[in-house]
Write a protein that binds this DNA or RNA. Structure first.
Lengths: 346, 346
DNA sequence: TTATGTGATGCAAACGATTGCAGAATAGCA
DNA sequence: TGCTATTCTGCAATCGTTTGCATCACATAA
């Protein structure tokens, strides 16, 4: 009970046991040069005084905050929540904490967060960028100093960096091939903005499958916009009022696929008979929907663990800066469900 | 470019502009006693040197980390994700950061996190406890010191504390009354463990509505367990193999309601004709399901903003410790959908 | 006895910012 | 010119730990 309601420090312990602060510090951290006897005594007194370690002071002194910053568009996306959980659990094993921030899909917000995080002395950064991040100078060595950064899922296009991504190309390819094998020949593609890496890759996969089946790529049935319900319904309106209606829609997330289903229901288009539909990310709604929606599983836990391990390697493994960049790819798996299978109406 | 790759500090700026560190510090923080001229010069040099503020050092010196700790069972629950987002956005306006941790429904983990957070010198704690937290001594003044804590959603039972909760009693009452009004007289209740405040309140609301309609409370059709799919299916098995099958199930979350629907589908029980079903939390799956599920909207954003405002009041408003506790209640709204409406089979 | 080794402990300087108080410079006024 | 106000700036202590180096006691070997 020193002064008013000050916190008790190792100095207080030192006084209580009649030793120097350095010995107390070492005793508490189980330093080999301290006798067992002293250690138990110090720990007992610490306990008794209600001592609490001040991680801030330690972080300042050793310039190691044991904290990683995470920037994510929004945590309310099921995929992101799962990745975050995996990252957090993994980092915990390394003794690191995670500061989670949401950019809300705003590049300005994203930049603000980076600066804020740098101020808090994070030792590393894990980032999934916004849909609209085009300018990556915020992540340059000039603003980050020696703080390593690992991107995941949505990663910079045309910028060498450490990253871990799903096999989006394969995902796009598999979905499209599957639809083609079901007999579809006019496959619409509802995609996100191409400024975002994942959509670009999926589009490439889509194109490749079409090529393989000698189906010409028709840009009139490919849309790029944020994948919410409203936008998707608008795209459907355009798609189904044209002369040639599609026989399948490859939507780039499950929210969008659900919207397509809703549109079809309202317009008496039967799925999967007249129209086949696929989503992406395999969130829990795909199984609940009637018909159930075919989707692509992305194994968020693998990605989260990978990201955590990667940032740890970069921090602890003291990679030489300027060395080459590491890029990891996690698998994807097409989950076929009702919405994309069965005979079509001729 | 001082030493190796040391970070540049205000000292470096001081040397560069030929002033003392104190003036530089004041200039950077826009102190009124510093001339405009000096301020612009200092800021220019800071910019040029690539100076970055060290929040750690400042936090240590002023004993104000500007950080709040959040402990939540898991962020993957839609409701929780929404609350967290609201909290984070609100706190940002106050200049506070949020450290988010997940207890994964484990009281042991929860306790570990509290201790860890205290070490990082958070200025406040926001907590939604696990389903099984019964011992609240971790949140006592003895371990928390002067750090205030506000609970939300799942809050301690029988412990005075600052908290913000949904109107669970009303929710339970409204749901039950609604089902009674639809003609149901044998309403099963699938609830979570009663160690958790929200389930206790909902149960009370359920009982009150029954009483009002002079329907006896029958403990044989009330179940308490974690509300996942497996457990719910088991409960359904018990419910529908008894002599008297229920004509309604009031499930305490949407996952559970969905499971009931699945069970009904597999056993050719038609919903809502033979059986009415309601969920709780109104997550996005309730609208996707066929039939759509009646549920209770909890307005997570209100709760998040409330929690943030409350903790800020406690921190900045320097409430006298030992003063009375604040308890806020946010509204709920029953959303009636297909699963609970329409005439019953007699 | 002296030299040497060993294990335990203390001294004091960091880490990077903030801030009360003192002091210098300038201006205003008689 | 002298005196007081008014601005602006600097000194130095402080926040709670960590850690390189010096020191000290004691035992053992020469």
């Amino acid at each position: 009970m020193k002064k008013k309601q000050q916190q008790v420090t190792i100095k207080d312990i030192a006084i209580a046991v009649g030793m120097s602060v350095s010995s107390v510090s070492r005793a508490l951290s189980d330093h080999p040069h301290i006798s067992e006897e002293t250690k138990v005594k110090v720990n007992a007194v610490a306990q008794q005084l209600g001592y609490r370690y001040n991680a801030l002071a330690a972080a300042l002194r050793r310039s190691r905050s044991k904290t990683i910053g995470l920037i994510v568009p929004r945590i309310s996306m099921a995929f992101q929540a799962a990745v975050i959980t995996a990252i957090q659990n993994s980092l915990q094993d390394f003794g690191y904490n995670l500061m989670i921030f949401q950019s809300n899909e705003s590049p300005e917000q994203e930049e603000k967060i980076v600066n804020l995080l740098m101020g808090t002395q994070v030792e590393g950064l894990i980032v999934s960028v916004t849909l609209y991040t085009k300018d990556y100078h915020v992540f340059d060595r000039s603003t980050l100093g020696n703080v390593p950064v690992v991107f995941y899922d949505r990663v910079p296009i045309d910028k060498a960096c450490h990253k871990i991504v799903g096999d989006e190309y394969s995902g796009g390819y598999q979905v499209t091939k599957h639809l083609l094998e079901q007999g579809c020949r006019r496959i619409a593609h509802i995609s996100g903005p191409l400024s975002c890496s994942i959509y670009l890759q999926r589009l490439n996969g889509y194109k490749e499958a079409l090529r393989e089946f000698r189906v010409p790529y028709d840009e009139d049935i490919v849309y790029f916009h944020e994948l919410n319900k409203e936008n998707t319904l608008k795209s459907c309106d355009l798609l189904f009022t044209g002369k040639q209606v599609p026989d399948a829609v490859f939507a780039c997330n499950d929210t969008s696929a659900l919207a397509v289903l809703e549109y079809a229901r309202e317009h008496q288009i039967s799925v999967p008979t007249q129209l086949k539909v696929t989503g992406y990310a395999n969130d829990s709604r795909t199984e609940i929907s009637r018909p159930q929606i075919s989707s692509v599983e992305q194994f968020p836990h693998l990605m989260g663990e990978g990201a955590a391990k990667l940032i740890m390697d970069l921090i602890e493994g003291s990679e030489q800066p300027g060395k080459s960049f590491i890029s990891l790819t996690t698998p994807v798996e097409l989950i076929k469900r009702e919405s994309s299978q069965g005979k079509s109406a001729s």
